[in-house]
């Protein structure tokens, strides 16, 4: 599926981030460390799937014709998906999932806040809803950083390891390619490179309180925005798209 219109590509990109993040989070359902957390994590997962649907629905509207939200989720292959690599990494242990969430939430909050000011009213409206969710997500994941970072030695080590593994995938959040730069000029998109310092401040402050070290920068791995993914995304899609691939063209 080829997307040409810059706005559509941008909207789908945001939808992809949300869908893949939601997918990874949903894998925790029935597997969380205790029941309250099972329910809380499911809420976050639902927020992300809900967010994906809003972005995809908007993109479908922009495309017109037969395209629906499901077209984007179920009928594109790995090379067409443009989510951040950070979102697709396997869920790992609870520390890995929560560290990923924290690093992403600390980005997502200022991002959605900025997107609220988009000149595109639809994007701004989606952002207004997402921003409220992100505020809660960040509060939750920051709390977990404190508990796990300053909990037992084991939890501290698991978190520190997770952060070291995740860190190289954080650069990509602040990358602005031509697509974004053009839309920034038009007032539509968020200039994410300008969010880096806010993000780093939040992250540094929280990790310090949590007695965790901010990992040394080792450059970043990128590629998600142009469809160069880790091997993991293919397996997500194989599972997610199974029904639509095995029984194409039916109503469910």
């Amino acid at each position: 599926m080829k997307l040409n219109d810059p706005l559509t590509r941008y909207v789908v990109r945001l939808g992809d981030d949300a869908l893949i993040m939601g997918h990874r989070l949903s894998e925790w359902m029935s597997r969380a460390p205790f029941l309250e957390e099972d329910i809380a994590l499911s809420n976050v997962a639902l927020d992300f799937v809900g967010r994906a649907r809003l972005f995809y629905q908007y993109a479908a509207e922009l495309m017109g014709g037969e395209v629906t939200e499901d077209t984007f989720a179920y009928q594109r292959d790995v090379r067409d998906f443009t989510n951040l690599l950070l979102c697709e990494l396997p869920r790992g242990d609870f520390a890995f999932t929560l560290c990923r969430q924290f690093l992403y939430d600390a980005f997502s909050l200022p991002f959605t806040q900025a997107l609220c000011h988009s000149t595109d009213p639809q994007l701004a409206a989606i952002a207004a809803k997402a921003e409220k969710e992100s505020r809660y997500h960040l509060r939750r994941s920051s709390d977990w950083m404190l508990r796990l970072g300053d909990g037992t030695q084991e939890s501290h080590e698991r978190c520190q390891n997770a952060l070291e593994q995740l860190w190289i995938y954080t650069d990509e959040m602040f990358e602005c390619d031509d697509l974004v730069n053009d839309l920034v000029v038009a007032g539509v998109a968020v200039n994410t490179s300008s969010l880096r310092s806010t993000w780093l401040e939040t992250v540094t402050e929280t990790l310090r309180t949590a007695t965790l070290a901010v990992p040394e920068s080792q450059g970043g791995v990128t590629g998600g925005r142009v469809g160069i993914h880790t091997d993991d995304l293919g397996f997500i899609l194989a599972e997610m798209q199974f029904m639509q691939r095995a029984y194409p063209g039916l109503q469910w």
Partner: peptide, 20 residues
């Protein structure tokens, strides 16, 4: 009722559990 580490977390879980 529910289980939590402290009142702060209890409040968050209460939101997630009892106000879905």
């Amino acid at each position: 009722s529910l289980h939590a580490d402290d009142p702060h977390q209890a409040l968050e879980y209460a939101r997630d559990v009892y106000t879905r």
